[in-house]
Design a protein around this nucleic acid. Structure first.
Length: 981
DNA sequence: GGGCCAAGCGCC
DNA sequence: AAAGGGCGCTTGGCCC
């Protein structure tokens, strides 16, 4: 059988293949296939042998001068050698090219493509290049390049079908094919053409990395797996084992590791508590297990190791590895530490130097300096550095883009180095663990002002079990109702269409092309409303008077011409002069955010936005203020656009149109941020549950959620399509949604020991109303005369404006908001804002004193502390710009409050997790949204479980609450998240 | 086509 | 001069 693999090269502007071009089986139409086959057979008699990859590698690792191509040719023995030196070829392509096609080709480039680019990475056969094909390579730009392969053992069957190819593939995959065939061609995926090469940096890193090879015990069969596992479970049972997996079949950017990804190999490095490394034979301190070649059975041999809760395992990013291992049916236990969390606990502010990546941490001497004997190569080197290749241009200069082969391929074809790379992960994780542990052991732990051991003790008591909980929650996931989502998608899209048409119609009266504008583009909106405006920061820089944009050609598919171009170019110019601007973006241009636009439009009720009368109900205010109750036709309710567009009917229309624009934006954002992603196949998997990733990766110790972020699902009135209704309990189950009331304010009261606040919480009633009362004499009078109660009902608020102000202040002050900020929010003078602030602080002197103290701490110690004693570090305020200093001071005020609230929420979750009754009833934590937790469990025990959850949350410290305030908890059972609010 | 940035917006 | 903390994610626009 003759297999003809063909690859198409693009010859347009640059030579070479991008990304992951796949070989296609087929034949080149311009050739006579029979002739080629014949010719091929002829040519293949002149065989070209190359050294095995091992020999080649050895030379390179040893640092000996690589053999020159000519030499290589001569030195090759007569017998068959594995042509498996893709790696070498890449490095020494000039030599190879001069050697390889030497006699038949004068173009280096051609040789590169035809000869080296794809071959033979697995091919254990002599190969050659057909003259014709080579010639074809030199064809003018736009022509195709052929690569031909001969499987001479099957040469009797000159077939060119894709079936044949895939059959061969399957064989290769099963591993049979090497045994059965002496000479074969295997399908190759040539994602890296020869026009890519390693950089100098890579070369060096590869040399260094190769040095650890003899420390690694390679396990690729059941027997060796058994003996190693035996060691792990007996002699080294009490050791600390750093583990790391390499994983295939997952797109980590888009997919959750729950149900996605397979382990292709893993490594384990072990040491005892005195940092003495284990010896797995001949001084090898690390095990590297080949799951790809060894097979799944080899992995399963390690199940008793992974599942033993008494064998301590350390990971860097435990969550990912655990999920992937569990994909193979192994229940991971014995979680001992996550070095990412340790690092975060040590310093929560690593923004640069690689952040909390294993590479960044292990190469940072400030992190690693507690390791006693530091190996020179203890630091991880990224996959990109080791295996990434840069494109090389024709002139020999290096390009910018770096590409990396698939991990499976690296493991097979760049094997030794891959083993080193993978093993180093567990080795450096172990070192990192040791260093961070000793650092944390040196850091005092002060719990709510009382000394209590070291921060490593803190880790063991809190963050270790917390880390385990988070992974469990990720595994649980939340059930989403996709049918429901697709229904609301229809509604949302329809409403968006109506609104978009309305706006475009209006805008096109002023600027015709606006009919086709992208209403989602800030730039285009800015072009219409603020053309010619000067930048607020950079004087002299002005926004252009008019600009052209490319927009997709949707409805306007060419009518007369046959030109159905995908894009059309539109020209937009300003449609209004002197529009008053009161909001700017950080870069100095007028803001076109929802707030800014609403301020232009004024208060326009939603029903005016849709031409069809589909009133969404009056809960959807566009301005949000309750005290603007004027008739919509009263022009005082219109915004600044009214006058700018000339008032009267035109002014009205403009305001309506701009309000419509806001609607479009908000609908768009709901669709693309929530409604669509929640239906994405890549996000939810088994049984329609969504598994986000929960991380302790914030500055303050709050959780964050990713892929998707379930912590920012629209809530309350913003949830116009009831997106939260899509988060449901499984049939027969119920959700419990429980949240703290004013958690941060209560924390603030405790931390500051503010009598007024403590009293207010003790007295109960509505906290914000009470704040308002304390601020304003006339409210106090009213309360004393019993004209009003300190309870709050949405529609019976006697002093709504005052309460709103008080509420805003309550939240703002914890964040360090200034008078200037308040004045802008409230659209009052700075003086007035300052006065209001003063009122707030008047009976809360302790708060100002405490805030002052936090700022001092930031200056003196460069860190502040939470309730449980975690710290947040800051750069030394003395060494930064004054604008940054302001930020540091505000963060210093906020971090203890936010961080302590996070501590309390964490304790509550630990408490819930510890509760055996809850577990017996079958309740599991699903999600945490800062001051709210969501659980799922059997409907019949919902009420009992709810009571337990409330109890856990209000006494989150091992069944007690030592705070000076009560912790108010509001909990509901419901079938959906929406219903529980 | 991928990577990056600015802007904007969702949550607490 | 700017002047509220903490997140994640999307789009558009631009560059390579």
């Amino acid at each position: 059988m003759l297999l003809v693999y063909r690859q198409d090269y693009s010859h347009s502007s640059d030579m070479g293949v991008r990304g992951s071009g796949h070989f296609k089986v087929g034949f080149y139409a311009n050739f006579n296939v029979q002739n080629i086959a014949q010719e091929w057979v002829e040519e293949s008699k002149r065989l070209l042998y190359l050294r095995t990859i091992n020999n080649v590698k050895k030379n390179i690792y040893n640092g000996t001068t690589p053999l020159r191509a000519g030499n290589l040719h001569h030195e090759l023995p007569e017998d068959h050698r594995v042509l498996n030196n893709h790696y070498y070829l890449h490095d020494r392509r000039d030599h190879v090219s001069s050697m390889s096609i030497v006699n038949r080709c004068d173009s280096t480039e051609l040789v590169n493509h035809s000869m080296i680019n794809q071959p033979a990475r697995y091919v254990s056969a002599p190969v050659n290049v057909v003259n014709n094909s080579v010639k074809q390579l030199s064809a003018p730009s736009g022509s195709k390049v052929e690569t031909l392969w001969l499987d001479s053992s099957l040469a009797d069957n000159p077939l060119h079908t894709s079936e044949a190819a895939s059959e061969l593939d399957d064989k290769a995959h099963d591993g049979d094919y090497k045994r059965d065939c002496k000479i074969v061609a295997q399908k190759v995926i040539p994602s890296l053409p020869i026009t890519e090469s390693f950089s100098k940096e890579s070369e060096n890193a590869r040399k260094v990395l190769a040095g650890i090879y003899d420390k690694v015990m390679i396990v690729d069969n059941i027997e060796s797996a058994r003996s190693v596992v035996q060691l792990l479970r007996t002699k080294y049972k009490g050791f600390i084992h750093a583990c790391d997996t390499e994983v295939s079949n997952i797109n980590v950017k888009e997919e959750t590791p729950v149900g996605h990804g397979e382990v292709i190999c893993f490594s384990i490095s072990s040491a005892n508590s005195d940092s003495q490394a284990a010896d797995f034979g001949n001084g090898k301190t690390c095990i590297w297990v080949d799951v790809l070649n060894g097979g799944r059975d080899v992995l399963m041999e390690f199940a008793p190791f992974f599942e033993d809760p008494s064998i301590k395992k350390v990971w860097h990013n435990y969550s990912f590895d655990r999920h992937v291992i569990e994909n193979h049916g192994i229940k991971v236990a014995g979680f001992h530490a996550d070095t990412m969390h340790l690092a975060r606990l040590w310093d929560s502010s690593r923004k640069t130097d690689g952040g909390y990546s294993l590479e960044g941490l292990t190469n940072d001497h400030r992190v690693m300096d507690a390791v006693p004997e530091d190996l020179p190569n203890a630091g991880k080197t990224s996959m990109k550095t080791i295996f990434g290749r840069k494109k090389v241009r024709k002139n020999g200069s290096e390009g910018k883009n770096i590409s990396i082969e698939s991990v499976e391929k690296l493991q097979r074809e760049d094997r030794e180095l891959w083993i080193c790379y993978s093993s180093l992960d567990s080795m450096s994780t172990l070192k990192l663990y040791e260093s961070l542990k000793s650092k944390l052991q040196e850091k005092d732990w002060v719990f709510d002002g009382c000394p209590r051991g070291t921060m490593y003790d803190f880790y063991e008591e809190y963050w270790r079990p917390f880390g385990d909980i988070l992974v469990k929650m990720e595994t649980e996931g939340m059930l989403v109702d996709r049918t429901f989502l697709s229904e609301i998608e229809k509604t949302a899209v329809a409403e968006r269409e109506v609104a978009a048409e309305k706006f475009q119609k209006w805008a096109s009266k002023y600027c015709p092309d606006a009919k086709y504008m992208n209403v989602n583009s800030d730039t285009q909106i800015r072009q219409l409303l603020f053309a010619g405006i000067e930048n607020r920061h950079k004087s002299g820089e002005t926004w252009p008077q008019s600009r052209t944009f490319k927009v997709p050609n949707q409805e306007f598919v060419a009518t007369e011409d046959k030109k159905t171009s995908k894009c059309r170019t539109i020209k937009l110019y300003g449609i209004v002069d002197d529009l008053k601007i009161d909001m700017f973006t950080p870069s100095g241009w007028p803001s076109v955010s929802g707030d800014a636009l609403r301020s232009l439009a004024g208060k326009i009720p939603t029903e005016h936005i849709y031409s069809i009368d589909d009133n969404q109900g009056d809960d959807e205010g566009t301005g949000g203020s309750e005290d603007l109750k004027q008739d919509v036709d009263d022009k005082s309710s219109y915004g600044t656009a009214y006058e700018a567009f000339g008032g009267g009917k035109k002014g009205k229309e403009a305001c309506h149109a701009i309000a419509t624009l806001c609607e479009i934006c908000s609908i768009d954002s709901l669709i693309s941020n929530f409604i669509l992603p929640l239906q994405g196949d890549h996000i939810s998997c088994k049984e329609g549950r969504i598994h986000c990733s929960l991380n302790i990766n914030t500055e303050t110790g709050r959780l964050s959620a990713r892929t998707p972020n379930l912590q920012n699902q629209p809530a309350l009135e913003k949830d116009r399509y009831k997106i939260r209704q899509a988060f449901v309990a499984a049939p027969g189950n119920s959700l419990i949604v429980a949240d703290y009331g004013q958690l941060e304010l209560r924390i603030l009261a405790h931390l500051t020991n503010c009598k007024s606040m403590l009293d207010a919480f003790k007295a109960g009633g509505d906290f914000h109303s009470r704040t308002a009362m304390n601020m304003y004499q006339h409210i106090r009078d009213a309360v004393e005369e019993e004209r009003v109660l300190l309870e709050w009902h949405p529609h019976q608020d006697a002093f709504a404006a005052e309460r709103r102000k008080a509420k805003m202040l309550n939240f703002s002050i914890a964040y360090g908001k200034t008078a200037v900020g308040l004045s802008r929010d409230w659209k009052v003078s700075v003086k007035e804002a300052r006065h209001t602030l003063k009122l707030w602080y008047r009976d809360r002197k302790e708060v100002s004193a405490w805030q002052k103290r936090q700022k001092e701490l930031a200056h003196e110690k460069c860190e502040v502390y939470t309730l449980l004693g975690r710290s947040r570090r800051f750069p030394n305020p003395a060494h930064v710009r004054s604008s940054q200093r302001g930020h540091i001071e505000r963060a210093a005020i906020n971090a203890p409050v936010q961080g302590s609230a996070a501590d309390v929420a964490m304790c509550a979750m630990l408490e819930i997790e510890r509760n055996t009754r809850l577990k017996e009833l079958g309740w599991r934590l699903l999600l945490q949204v800062h001051d709210e937790v969501i659980l799922e469990g059997p409907e019949e025990s919902a009420d009992a479980a709810k009571a337990i959850v409330v109890e856990c949350m209000s006494k989150p410290f091992y069944g007690t609450n030592f705070l000076k305030v009560d912790l108010a908890v509001d909990a509901k059972c419901a079938k959906s998240w929406y219903a529980a609010k």
